[in-house]
Structures are given as C-alpha cells and as structure tokens.
Design a protein around this nucleic acid. Structure first.
Lengths: 179, 179
DNA sequence: TAAGATAATCAACACAGTGTTAAAAAATAG
DNA sequence: CTATTTTTTAACACTGTGTTGATTATCTTA
C-alpha cells in the first residue's frame, strides 16, 4: 500500500546517480537533466518525488543521520559500530559533510558527538557551562576533522586503531583542561 | 598602464555584491544576472573579467589568503594580527570556509596553520613523521573549528582571550601526546 | 585639454536547463 | 484479469547563459 516497487526503484537509481555524479563534479554543476539521464528516469518523474537536486540530497542525508542515531540508541553507541558505519558510507558522508547548501549535516553530526562527549565527561568536573563550550568546540572539531581526513585518505589504518588514538587525544585534552 | 579606475571599480562592486548576496542565499542560487543587477554592472562586462561566479569567488579567496600569508611573513606571524585580520574579514572567511566548490580555501588555511604548528613543536620531540600526522589533524581541526564557531557567534570574547584559551588547549594536547 | 586607447553599455542571438502540463503507455496490487 | 498507480512522452513558456558587434563613456598621457 505504501511502497510500490516502481517508486522504490526510481528513488534508488536517482540516489545512486547523485552520489556517483558527486564523485565526478561539484554539486553545483549537476543538473536534474543529467541526473535523470544517468538514472534512466524521465525528468518529469523526478519532480514527482523531489523538488530539486538539494531535496534529493537532503533525503539521502536524513537516511544517513537516522542510521547513525539508531546506532547510538541501540547498544549505547558502540564506537566500533559507528566508525564502521561511517566508513561503509564514506562517499555519501564526505560529499555531505563538506557541502554548504545542506549545511545541517555537519551541524547534526557535530551536535551528536558533542552530546556524547558531554555525557562522557560529566563525572570529571566538566560541567555543562558556557565557559566550557569552547572545550567541546575543540574536541568535536578535532575528532571530526581527524575522521574526515581518515576517510579522505581511504582509511589508512583500521577502525580500532583510529578509535584508540582519538580516545587518547581527546581524553588528554580533557585532562589538561581540568588542571 | 595595468590599473584602470574603471576596472578597479567594476571588480570592487562585483566583489561586494557577491559577498552581500552570500549573506542572503547559498552560493548555488546566485545567478550572474542578479549579481550584475545588484552591482549595477552590465552582464557582458562580468564576462570580461570572470568566467563565472566561482571564478569571482576564487579571486576573493586568493586575496584573502595573500593577506594572511603577508601577515605570517612580516613580523613572524603575530597571533593577534592574525585573529584581527580574520575577524575583520569575517563575512568572506565564513562564506569561503564552508564552501565546497572552492574547497581549496579550507585546505589552504589548514595547511598554513599546520606548518606553523609543526614549527612550533619541533623542539618538543614531535618530529615531522607520518605517525604524528593525526596529531596535527587534531590540532588544526580543533583550532580552526573553535575559530569558526567564534566568528559565527559574532566574536563573543576578544581576540586575546580566544588566543589564550586556544593556546592552552593545543599546548595541552601536545603535552599529553608526548607522554 | 585634446586625441587615442580602453572599458563599459546596449541589444540581440542561439542555446541549456527548468518546471509544468495532459494524454498515452507500462507496471503493480489485489 | 482489472482497476489503480506510476512512468513516459511531447510539448509549453520561462529564465539564465555565453557570445557578438556597434555605440557610448571614461581614462591615460602627451
């Protein structure tokens, strides 16, 4: 009733085509016309499901975020699951993260991590106060920056090693901060 | 011979119009037509100086980077001058940093800072080795992230305070790392 | 300040992509 | 199989693009 095979197929090929095109050229230069040609979908059909390229990208983003949130809820945010998920969706993550138009992606990831970090350190004398915000800016930016660079370089070390060194870095930062 | 007042004027109003428009809408939605209307410059004239919107943005970027490099060379990169410059060019910096198409901006800033940090710590046992790259990823991302957030929030504290806390944070990270 | 050089404007052009229609064809669910 | 839903097709007006040649305005410098 709510999911016709044809609709599923159309949305799938359009999503794949966009990600594929994003690896070839910047988002700004991707036209709806070529997107549909690549997907072998009629241009009119595109407008049935999406308003424009950005709308499509937004839906891809929403699915990714949802996947991450599910990981965080179930099993209390296992780090290894999280990095695995990110690595497996590398192309989409990199595209989305550095894309201004759908800027909310970076912000949503950042705030997910920020909340996690705040929880992690609340028993170490780091209260949720305004003057500590900059510490979290620093931690979040540092961890995300390292992760993105790791993805960009095609994951030169395995997940566990990355997690280990990141943990050492941010725990170290916090230790110094409370001195 | 190489600088006609008319050219200077045209380029100036086009630059200003772009920055102004970037504060109203995303880059992708800015047309050459409206850019020229805003600047009161004939559309044909735009094409004499630039290929497209991105070309214009690139030139704005190049000037900003050049200004930063000049600051670093003269007077050995005074931090206060640097943050002052960034703050005074806030609008352009924020636009450029989070814009993918001219993605080199973020990378150029990052590598400027990375080189500076490497120089700063070379007498502390942190060698320029591959295994230390992630430390610099972390430092650079953290410092830049804090600075951008500071700019976004309209500089809630003055330059010196920001410099002071950032210095404490990254020096702390390094101390922990060498342990 | 006058003359020649250079730059900006104007109007027109073919062309690309957009967003929307209505009717025909194809695929699906029950 | 049949009624329903989706996709395709072809056409439409519209907006922005990139380029042109002729005209007007402004600048440089002698």
């Amino acid at each position: 009733m709510k999911s016709d095979r044809r609709v599923k197929y159309t949305k799938m090929v359009l999503r794949n085509s966009l990600i594929q095109l994003l690896n070839e050229k910047p988002f700004e230069k991707i036209t709806i016309k070529e997107l549909c040609q690549r997907a072998d979908v009629n241009r009119g059909t595109f407008y049935v499901h999406y308003n424009d390229q950005e709308d499509l990208l937004q839906q891809i983003q929403d699915e990714l975020i949802e996947g991450m949130q599910n990981l965080c809820e179930k099993g209390g945010c296992k780090k290894s699951d999280w990095f695995k998920y990110v690595r497996e969706n590398k192309d989409a993550v990199l595209c989305l993260y550095s894309h201004k138009a759908t800027k909310s992606f970076a912000e949503r990831i950042n705030s997910l991590l920020r909340e996690y970090l705040k929880l992690s350190v609340k028993d170490r004398g780091i209260k949720n106060e305004g003057k500590n915000e900059i510490l979290f800016d620093y931690l979040v930016s540092g961890i995300v920056g390292c992760t993105l660079h790791w993805l960009t370089r095609d994951c030169p070390c395995d997940d566990e090693q990355l997690i280990c060194i990141l943990e050492r870095l941010w725990q170290g930062t916090v230790s110094e901060f409370v001195k």
